[in-house]
Write a protein that binds this DNA or RNA. Sequence first.
DNA 1: CCTAGCACTATAAATATCGGAGTGCTAATA
DNA 2: TATTAGCACTCCGATATTTATAGTGCTAGG
Lengths: 330, 330
Amino acid sequence: MLTKRENSILKLIVEEYIPFAKPVSSKLISKRLKCSPATIRNDMQSLELSGLIEKTHTSSGRIPSEAGYRYYVDNLMDKRKMKETDMKKLEIIFSNQQLALSDCITKSLQLVSDMTNYVSVILGSTSHENLLKQIEVVPIDEDNMTVIVITDKGNVKHKIINLKNVSLEEVKKTVSLINNLIIGTPIDEVSTKLEYEVKPIIGKYVNQHEQIYNAFYHVFTDFTESNNVNIVGKNKFLEQPEFYDLEKIKGINSKLDNKDILRKIVNKSDSHDIEIYIGEENQIDDNVTVIKTKYKTKTDEGTIAIIGPKRMEYNRVINLLEFIKKNIER
Amino acid sequence: MLTKRENSILKLIVEEYIPFAKPVSSKLISKRLKCSPATIRNDMQSLELSGLIEKTHTSSGRIPSEAGYRYYVDNLMDKRKMKETDMKKLEIIFSNQQLALSDCITKSLQLVSDMTNYVSVILGSTSHENLLKQIEVVPIDEDNMTVIVITDKGNVKHKIINLKNVSLEEVKKTVSLINNLIIGTPIDEVSTKLEYEVKPIIGKYVNQHEQIYNAFYHVFTDFTESNNVNIVGKNKFLEQPEFYDLEKIKGINSKLDNKDILRKIVNKSDSHDIEIYIGEENQIDDNVTVIKTKYKTKTDEGTIAIIGPKRMEYNRVINLLEFIKKNIER
DNA sequence: CCTAGCACTATAAATATCGGAGTGCTAATA
DNA sequence: TATTAGCACTCCGATATTTATAGTGCTAGG
């Protein structure tokens, strides 16, 4: 159990370290609290013993430990004071009636990344949550056509397929068979259904069914793989002093670049609250914090997340995400 | 006019500097050529006088100057010896019959970026070169629908629009009017045509035409802006020793991130040959070389480019681009 | 025209110097 | 008993100093 003053000291250390990234001295704290540096130092020793703060070397000031950030977030942080300017800027986006929801989400997270210098991530609905709604085929020239796949959530993927010597007639026949047989199937299950339910039938009714079947099969496996992940501000870590080291940046980049990994990392819980994963609590990097939340609307659901250094502006980011979530959901 | 030996020396300096990024000494050169370091040093002085090589400090070895690279590329480089392994890897992509052309291009440039550690860029056809071919509307729920725009080149863009209290009927009417009136218009001109040719007419025949018109207008302005630029390996510069400096990386990133600027930079000539812009010859960064070429097929055209340090593997990259171009065009 | 030899120079890495910011501890104080 | 003043001590970081070395330019002789 920490004393009242210890709590204040820890709070001050975290809040001083967040913007300046420099170890905090007892002298500085003593100016804010009405007591001498020596007193502060005594408390600092006990805070260090509790594992909440650390030194960078024997005679340095203190920085928050991972447990320190956690304690701060759980117990000390002043919540719910959103910056006026942050709110104003976001409101402009959400009050624009012209914008579709998905554009609002993209634009607002872009804005957040710019305002905070952190990375933002949007995970849209998965290919499992999207149901096949409609397929369109548009011919381009003799050999090529564009296949357009539309899901119930309004997601659209298209792919140009190459069908030499296949008549548009036969393709259209196939499309209408597919449309009849497997509309409403989750996208990630379409390729299996294609194989077991559609293939046998088009085998009977459609000429050149081999080629056509293969083309469609590839369209859907592609669609399943592309998993609706959107990262903004990937190079924002260059702005943070603790990542001056190119090796660290490379390590983080390689994680962020792999969308499957990213989805797993960001999406490991089912909670719809704001969740915070500090340092080792996340799988990206020990020097990083992930703050995320799920959103759910009538038609769609997904996750939005902010990734920044451990000394990120917790309160600000939480408020930003909450604000965005609220606006998405209403 | 350079002597034969000076030419050899310059060639050796460039080819030694490209892989190792370290100033090249007269001693090293003398081992390759049959003469003493002193002789080489004399020639080096004259090469320096001609502005083709430089020193990094008074007693350092030499590195190629910008003019040196240019001279090397124009006169000294052994052309057309493509690496077996490079060719093999690319052939796998192009021999895959299932892949559509655009996927081949994307995949092959991805591969090139990985193999070389340079950045690769694909500029697809512009919104001016794409003609409106078809519009589809798919309802999602009461208030939202997806608008899908398809061009003659098989490009597809979609956007969810929000139309409260507007009946699908009226929207469909609008779509069929648009389809009748302005099919075949270059995408970048559609919004103007919408305003002057479509708006007056739907004003007469369509209920709630204001709302519908606005929604479509936004779809097309969006489409015009998104300009079909694809960058792969943006963080590859982190791998190059001359960009150890975060400030340099940031500078380059900011250029690469702006797709309009990038299109201008990469696309300044109309030639269909391989073109090389070394250092100051390009507008991205003095420490960078851009190698690009245009491609043109029956149905589409675009530009592919590789961006790397000035000491890039010129011959290799040229061969890679030529190979890809050839395969795209046949 | 080429080359051996030598003086010279800048760098890079290792070591030394020095001030300052910060701590921990002890003893005195409220 | 909790706080504080005072002081010795430590480590960092910035600035010099040293030393080795890899390279050059120049001169004179082959």
